[in-house]
Simulated assay, not measured.
Amino acid sequence: MHSSSENDTKGFDKQKQILVAVNLLCESDERRKTYQVIVEDVQARHRGLFPHPGLFDFDAVESAVTAIYNKMQDARVSPDVSSLLQDLYDVVDVAVATDAPSVREPTARYDLSNIDFSRLRAEFEKSPFKNVVAMNLMEKIEERLAAMVARNPTRVDLYERYQEIVQEYNKDKDAAEIQKVMDDLFAFNDDCSEEEKRYLREGLDSETELAVFDLLQKDSLTKGDREAIKKVAKDLLGKLADQRFALERLRSMATVQAQMKAEIIKHLYAHLPASAYDPDEINIKAGAVFAHIYSAGLGGGTPVYH
């Protein structure tokens, strides 16, 4: 008969091996996705053959590949990395402990919505499973970035910078390069936070106003022109908040789309600095503003901003 401590040790060893496997699979996005496809195919075949008696001989293998798959999915879909880090620290604590303490201090959990990322970075550096942590961070940052670009399409430079970090991560790399990728991810996340506050630095009331302001900008504007464009953005959004441009009407009725386009062009021709914009530029800017409002659903409301 096995003691409870022996069973616990075996359980922790199994969890450690699962995490080691996940860490290896997360060395590149391609490797992770390939494993995911293979396991989903295996699971489908297993279901198709059940309850064939010959399947029982492969239960241990099926359980192992599924456990690795599930842990990898947990790392991707968890709302933050708290649970994942808890697992990692539990495994590390057991692996390095020489004597089991009678009372174990609880390991701190982390909430990415209010944690100091410099502190979190320091905690990550203790983890032997950096690939898992990096992949998890990329998943969360990608979700955040997608929402940011939806709110403001001029943030394409942020998206391009993120793709460069991902490409660097997917290359063959040593521990030092993994650390650099993680540092880049943290720095990128900090920049995202700064970008989300930029509307305040511009003296605007919302990211909605910032998006329209950014779409109307061009090179070589004077300070006075920029301030004038901020007012143009505010006033235009005020006009387009009219319920006649409600999202359901805008998306379903060509006449409402035409009316909104006309309203935008009329407003820009009347209020953009005449010395800074020629008619062709105004038409292009009007098209860009309409396209964003239509895709983001800003007519008569701001769905994408909630």
Rank of each mutant, 00 (worst) to 15 (best):
N23S: 03
K231Q: 11
Q179A: 14
K126E: 08
F188H: 02
D80E: 05
R104N: 05
D235T: 15
V65T: 05
A134S: 15
Q217S: 15
R121L: 15
G297F: 08
A288N: 12
V132G: 08
I18P: 05
K14T: 09
R119Q: 13
P279S: 14
Q257R: 14
R198S: 13
S3F: 00
A291P: 06
K71S: 14
H46L: 09
N170D: 14
V22A: 09
Y159Q: 15
P53E: 01
F56T: 00
E142K: 13
H306K: 11
M253D: 14
F117R: 12
P303W: 00
Y162N: 12
N23T: 03
V132P: 04
K266F: 03
L240S: 06
N136Q: 10
E62S: 02
V133G: 06
K71G: 14
S78A: 15
H46S: 09
D242E: 05
Q86W: 10
D157T: 10
R45P: 00
M148F: 08
N131I: 07
P153A: 02
Y162C: 04
F56V: 04
E209D: 11
I68V: 15
S5N: 05
A75I: 06
F56I: 01
E142A: 09
Y159L: 14
A276Y: 05
L49K: 09
T255H: 09
A122Y: 09
Q257Y: 04
